[in-house]
Design a binder for these strands. Structure first.
Lengths: 187, 187
DNA sequence: ACCCCATGTGTACGGTTGTTCCTATGAGGT
DNA sequence: ACCTCATAGGAACAACCGTACACATGGGGT
């Protein structure tokens, strides 16, 4: 009778790096079910931590969401900048962009969803808009390695539109169409 | 003592067209505070009707939101198609598009917000995605009056990106830049 | 004139949310 | 060995939500 008195007592203790893990889990939850479903409880469940742990590590839910999106933007922006920087010339840069779009972005449903969800969050919460703007400016700066500022801006807008279309449309553009559009705009 | 027994009793009765008014009010609330804030109670307050009236006229909140977005998309799509159809040739169509963007869309914060909020709603609710897709296909068909299908599609994506940028960015593109980008893509 | 039912109205319910708060615990400095 | 405080843990709260429902009311067909 007294062998197991506590009903599945949580033994977890001393969990360094939990803060980081919470940020990562938050991204997973957003990618899986959207920002709207990224509640304290859903994240706590996914990370297998008690509810109170969230508000201990992050002052508010918005703060946690901002941390998560910031991490994601950092990852994607760094990868993108590296690709653009690695291209030897304008033509190679455009091809790298096509690859980035068709391979990484439109290929992985996860990144696509996260992009849209960031727009959603930014549209709703001014505190998160800073993250979106950071993403947009970094994206533009990466493009400017091989494109003049004006063209970079136009290409950036087109890319944003392509992502949106791909996420919400039933028949997204394929690589050939995307390459053609980019070359027409920047070629 | 008995002169005013009921505390501000609502005298309203017999309100034909209330259903339509609810749809219009819903759009106002969305434009003002976003889909996230478009709750039964907020809409009821804005339309000055009791809470129960909403669920009487619309089976669910999603149904009401869909009706509102549908009305908005109908309005904008009709206006846009008329503009495109009225243009005598390709060049005039592009100029009309510039006007549509700079004048109507980017000019009125309301339409801009509603566009974004529709994306938001569509991203979250599958039932609303049909409205977004309807908008996208109608928009493309309007462009096809003077543009070949491939170009129309590319322009459509660019326009969507421009709208997104304008809504979320701090320094949106001006008419000159937009015209230049469109001509490079479709000129 | 009368009745019916579409419409209007107010309230209540069950559920979920963000956040607060109190208590427990053990790793690290002394 | 001991004390301390950053962290872990769980319960509670007030606010809000969508929806259901019971009841009033009067316009329009008869």
């Amino acid at each position: 009778m007294s062998t197991s008195p506590a009903p599945a007592r949580r033994a977890r203790r001393y969990d360094p790096g939990r803060r980081d893990r919470l940020v990562a889990t938050t991204l997973d939850v957003i990618a899986e079910n959207g920002v709207a479903a990224a509640t304290h409880r859903a994240i706590a469940r996914a990370a297998d931590v008690p509810l109170g742990s969230l508000t201990y590590h992050f002052g508010s839910l918005t703060e946690l969401l901002a941390a998560a999106f910031t991490r994601h933007v950092d990852t994607v922006a760094a990868r993108f900048d590296q690709r653009m920087r690695a291209a030897p010339d304008r033509v190679a840069a455009l091809e790298a962009l096509v690859e980035h779009l068709t391979g990484d972005l439109l290929g992985s449903q996860r990144d696509l969803v996260l992009a849209i969800e960031l727009y959603v969050a930014a549209a709703r919460d001014p505190a998160l808009r800073a993250v979106t703007q950071d993403w947009m400016s970094r994206s533009r700066r990466s493009l400017e390695h091989h494109l003049d500022p004006v063209t970079a801006r136009e290409v950036d807008a087109l890319v944003e539109g392509l992502v949106l279309h791909s996420a919400l449309s039933t028949d997204p553009m394929d690589a050939v169409q995307i390459r053609s559009a980019l070359h027409r705009l920047a070629g």
